[in-house]
Amino acid sequence: MKLDKYTVGKRYGKALFELAIENEAADAVYQELLTIREICKEIPDLGNILTDVRLEGAEKKAIMDAFTGGFDGIVKNFLLVVFEYNRSDDLPFMIDEFERRYDEMNKVAHGTVTTAVPLSEEKKHELEAKVADVFGYQKASLTPIVDESILGGVIVEADHQVIDGSLASQLNGLRAALSKK
């Protein structure tokens, strides 16, 4: 049975996270994975190249040696296992799963904040602090989204929860209440 990329990513990411915790190296491994994520963004076809059946084994190995040259220990071994099992194109999913577990361990919430106008950095940081407090996390990292259709206020989505304080939502609620009378 062939597994989808998300399932593969979850399994490998979980295994790497558990190994990193066991070796008390979660922070170091996470930093190296961030570097790998950047490399994957700079060379988006890297995973496809390393799994391409048209390339000779020696060619792939040369590319892999260049790729893993800057890493050592757990991360290098992880990359070699991923390469050996022909899963290099699933690396971003593996990194995402590791990061999800790492953030959960460090009580960091990720989410979005939607506003009608762009937020200043100061307001964004203020909102992140409030969201972290409301959801019981030590820190929140919110990606700003501008959507003029909400008219005003904010919509925060984090930790699989939504706080809708938008003016559009409030007006729709008022309309619904008035139409019932």
Results as ranks from 00 to 15, higher is better:
Leu46His: 13
Glu97Leu: 01
Asp90Gln: 14
Thr68Phe: 00
Lys61Pro: 04
Asp89Phe: 13
Glu128Pro: 06
Phe93Asn: 12
Ile36Glu: 03
Pro92Thr: 10
Leu167Tyr: 12
Ser120Leu: 04
Val131Leu: 05
His110Trp: 11
Pro92Lys: 12
Lys61Cys: 07
Glu56Pro: 07
Phe67Trp: 09
Tyr85Leu: 13
Leu142Phe: 06
Leu91Ser: 08
Leu46Met: 13
Ile36Gly: 03
Thr114Glu: 09
His125Gly: 10
Arg101Leu: 15
Leu80Trp: 09
Ser166Gly: 06
Val162Met: 10
Thr35Trp: 10
Ala158Gln: 03
Ile39Lys: 09
Ala129Asp: 11
Arg54Tyr: 05
Glu97His: 14
Glu38Tyr: 00
Glu104Ser: 09
Asp90Ile: 01
Pro144Ala: 00
Phe135Met: 11
Asn86Phe: 07
Val81Ala: 05
Phe71Ile: 08
Pro92Ile: 10
Val81Pro: 05
Asp45Lys: 12
Ile145Trp: 01
Pro144Glu: 08
Phe83Lys: 11
Gly153Asn: 04
Val117Asp: 10
Leu142Trp: 05
Ile49Phe: 08
Ala140Met: 06
Ala116Lys: 08
Asp65His: 07
Leu127Glu: 05
Asp96Trp: 08
Glu122Leu: 04
Leu127Arg: 03
Ser88Thr: 15
Ala132Trp: 05
Ala116His: 07
Glu122Tyr: 05
Asn48Lys: 13
Ala109Met: 01
Asp89Cys: 12
Asp133Met: 09
Val156Phe: 08
Val113Gly: 03
Glu121His: 09
Asp52Leu: 05
Lys139Asp: 02
Glu99Arg: 14
Thr112Leu: 02
Leu55Asp: 03
Asp103Ile: 02
Lys61Ile: 09
Met94Gln: 06
Glu97Arg: 14
Val154Gln: 06
Ala66Phe: 03
Val117Asn: 11
Lys76Gly: 05
Pro144Val: 01
Asp164Leu: 06
Lys123Ala: 09
Gly70Trp: 10
Val53Ile: 14
Glu38Trp: 00
Ile145Pro: 00
Pro118His: 08
Ile155Val: 15
Arg54Pro: 00
Asp52Trp: 09
Glu84Lys: 15
Tyr85His: 15
Gly152Glu: 05
